[in-house]
Design a protein around this nucleic acid. Structure first.
Lengths: 210, 210
DNA sequence: AATAGTGTGTATCAAAAGATACTTATCTCA
DNA sequence: TGAGATAAGTATCTTTTGATACACACTATT
């Protein structure tokens, strides 16, 4: 179990001592295994999950295809849950644990209450809205304007930039899911990129050159 | 000029008297003509515009094409401005007045201050984030998954649903801009729909049947 | 009436993306 | 080691979307 000390070392956003006390008073802790589905489209949520450790993947689904909305990492919460919890509305996306994750769970009604009491909480909420919105806007612009081969390139370079390793451990199928297309399309594009010496392809990972 | 009375008849979201006093104290009023560009991509905004009367169109641009993000009508504010003003960040979209509009303009720094003081203001802000996010998510899903002819149909039926007239006064070119494609594509689809007896086409407007 | 601007119809061609099907390689684990 | 699952390569075909070009109709203005 987390001690107070450890927890707020990780959740740096919540600096106010009173807020910390409140969180400890009301929060439950949840451990999710890799692959656990935490949020389903259409589901009503009356809680807000804040990731302590691990990674959640939030995506939309449409019959056979799916597309990534965003990841939720440590110190972050999920837009879907926030909207859903705040407005008593159902979720419009799915959330799944990508890694074994540890999650702090708060009752929904506290979101609004704390917003008026704790500036750092308010900032956290607004920050979540803003950054998720920006991400989505970005993705939207890409989908609307950029051909897939460009989106593939951007995905890979973005990944490498964040991880500072040029090996991206992802299968063609998974990459297709991230970008909302099909495996064959991705394989074709990657092969083309390999011929242009932009990448090297291996089973299970892609090495970005340049 | 607006009197207090008239103004808050229109801006029903701001119910608290103290908030109303504050708004009147700090707000400036702006009249925009049809076609006036109010927000440009890349621009820093240190104010928050709230529409009293009229309509703003917020869109993204990419070289030759553009795509609609959302409209801002009376009692609403613009997500771009909100993000931009709140976080001292530049706008990532463009805003143009579609009609002669009257706009209330507030200094950016008040957004955060009032959020802690006035629950109705806080609700307004959060509501803006949520509804804009939902709209965008919706649009994103459409662009990612739905072929254009479906998006055209949905645009038209959505329009009719809101306006309760089955005549949609829009040119093919403008419709193309709304959906992020080109005029020829739209004309082609509409002609096809006409042959399927779904619409009747006229110069400058489209009549939706069914 | 002449003209310019806008709106629409449509043909042709090209490119992008997706569907399907089959093959081969690699991994995992009983 | 052998079966099943997963990953990847590729060929073929179709559909969707976009680009370009041109014709024609309507509108507004002079």
């Amino acid at each position: 179990m987390e001690t107070t000390h450890d927890l707020f070392k990780k959740l740096k956003s919540f600096s106010e001592p009173e807020l910390q006390t409140e969180i400890l008073k009301h929060a439950k802790f949840l451990k999710a295994n890799k692959g656990d589905i935490l949020i389903k489209e259409g589901q009503y949520l009356n809680f807000l999950p804040i990731v302590i450790d691990g990674l959640l993947r939030v995506y939309q689904q449409n019959e056979d295809r799916e597309i990534l909305l965003y990841y939720v990492g440590p110190e972050q919460t999920c837009m879907m849950s926030l909207s859903s919890a705040y407005f008593d509305y159902y979720s419009t996306a799915n959330g799944i644990a990508m890694e074994p994750s540890e999650i702090l769970v708060l009752p929904a009604h506290l979101i609004a209450e704390w917003q008026l009491k704790y500036p750092s909480w308010n900032k956290f909420i607004i920050n979540t809205y803003k950054s998720r919105y920006d991400e989505l806007l970005n993705a939207f612009g890409s989908v609307a304007f950029k051909p897939i081969h460009v989106r593939v390139k951007e995905y890979l370079t973005e990944y490498v930039k964040n991880e500072s390793s040029n090996k991206i451990p992802i299968s063609h199928q998974t990459l297709a899911n991230e970008l909302g297309t099909t495996r064959v399309v991705i394989s074709r594009i990657l092969k083309q990129m390999e011929q242009e010496k932009l990448v090297k392809l291996y089973r299970g990972y892609i090495q970005l050159k340049v």
